[in-house]
Amino acid sequence: MITTGITPSFVRGAAELETTARGLRPHRLPTWVRTRFPDPQLLMAEGQPSGVRLVLTTTAEVLEVVVHPSRVVYRGADRPRGSLDLVVDGELLQSDELTGGSYTEVDMSTGAGSLVDGPSHVGVFRGLPAGPKVVEIWLPHNESVELVELRTDAPVLPHRSDKPVWLHHGSSISHGSNAATPSQIWPAVAARAGGVELHNLGLGGSALVDPLTAQVMRDSPADFISVKLGINVVNMDSMRLRSFVPAVHGFLDTIREGHPETPLVLISPIFCGIHEDTPGPGAFDPASFGADQVKFIATGSPDGVAAGQLTLRVIREALASLVSRRAEDPNLHYLDGLSLYGAADAESHPLPDALHPDTVSHRLIGERFAEYAFADEGPFGQVNAAETVS
């Protein structure tokens, strides 16, 4: 077997790569953001490499990748491990569930945590198709990893793509919560269908109209952009209507400083029954502790809407109105999240934890977004066609 060190040239979808004692740790937000605002939830989310992948060309038929995972475990809640996905020439062929690594075990009742160390993980993929091919190893969306090395039975080279880049920001749903494996999160599904390169800034618990995130998006290369806002603002009860609408205007204005004419889609929240008409804050449902599936509840009161508290219904109306009042921007588009996953979908494919879609629903959302955005007459269709032709 040939051993190849993992260098930045193999990595796609990360903002930065931190050098560690073991190798490289992908980050989805740059150092300056992590330094200015070292919020624990944000740091955990950006350190989980959702949408980040190793991309290479090779004739190898056996491939091993060594990584060292790090994760957070909640006592009493058995959450699935992350996975490495093998995608060859655009097709998902194999998934490898992580083992070992380091983890912090958190007591949900007290918030106290303890660190446990374990061995690195070796992902083994055999039976790859013969001949030259483009291989992608999608990194786990729900665990941080350090990239150590590749082992193959034939040489590997980094692969560079000329596909257009889609930059997306959203909440834990865009991050991939409840999807089984990293290439099955809805932005990855949509990116494959649209034939584009994904740069995913889905940040679990952290889509809070942060100016820092808007500045990162302003400075990131992108051929088209989407922003999905609402659910985190509601389930953290972090804003009132009066502050939310101007904040979104400012968020979009910042992006436009770097991308004045790039097609941009503002997406409102998908259906979530607990928050449709009930404000946050959201919380773990104590009645579900110790069960197979921990669930979420809304702890606010519908009466709070009159005082400016936000629900998903209020946010959808506000975002639709906001886009209509920015008519001077012909490349700004509004997409109602209910068209991606609505009340009828919740009946046939319920949210397992009352907040996040499962793998089937991630695929549904991704396919529907691709049908909307990458259609010939869609907001990304003409740009995609132009890039493809060129």
Rank of each mutant, 00 (worst) to 15 (best):
I2H: 07
T3H: 06
I6G: 00
I6D: 01
P8D: 05
F10P: 00
V11M: 02
R12I: 15
G13H: 07
A14T: 08
A21V: 13
A21N: 02
L24G: 03
R25V: 14
P26I: 05
R34S: 06
T35M: 11
D39S: 08
M44I: 10
G47E: 08
G47S: 14
G47W: 06
G47Q: 06
P49V: 15
G51N: 03
G51W: 07
T57R: 11
T59P: 00
H68D: 10
H68W: 13
S70F: 15
Y74A: 10
G76W: 10
D78S: 14
D78G: 04
D78R: 08
R79E: 14
V87R: 02
T99R: 05
S102F: 04
V106M: 08
M108C: 03
M108F: 15
D117K: 03
D117M: 08
G118H: 08
S120W: 04
V122S: 02
G123M: 14
G127F: 11
L128N: 02
P129S: 04
G131A: 12
V135D: 05
E136D: 12
I137M: 06
W138E: 03
P140H: 10
S144P: 00
S144Y: 02
E146L: 03
D153Y: 11
A154I: 09
P155K: 04
W166C: 06
S171K: 08
S177M: 14
T181W: 13
S183M: 12
A190Y: 05
G195M: 14
V196P: 00
E197K: 10
L198E: 07
L203H: 01
G205R: 02
D210G: 03
T213A: 06
A222K: 01
A222F: 06
S226V: 09
G230Q: 02
N232A: 12
V233Q: 01
N235M: 12
M236F: 15
M239A: 15
A247H: 11
A247P: 00
G250T: 13
L252T: 04
R256L: 08
E257A: 12
H259N: 06
P260M: 11
P263L: 04
V265L: 06
L266K: 01
F271W: 09
F271R: 00
I274K: 00
D277Y: 11
P279W: 15
F284K: 00
S288I: 14
G290F: 14
Q293Y: 12
V294L: 13
K295N: 07
I297R: 03
G300R: 02
G300I: 06
Q309I: 09
L312C: 06
L312Y: 05
I315Q: 01
S321A: 15
R325N: 12
D329S: 09
H333I: 10
D336I: 13
Y341I: 13
A344F: 03
H349L: 15
P350H: 03
V360C: 04
A370K: 08
G378V: 15
A386D: 12
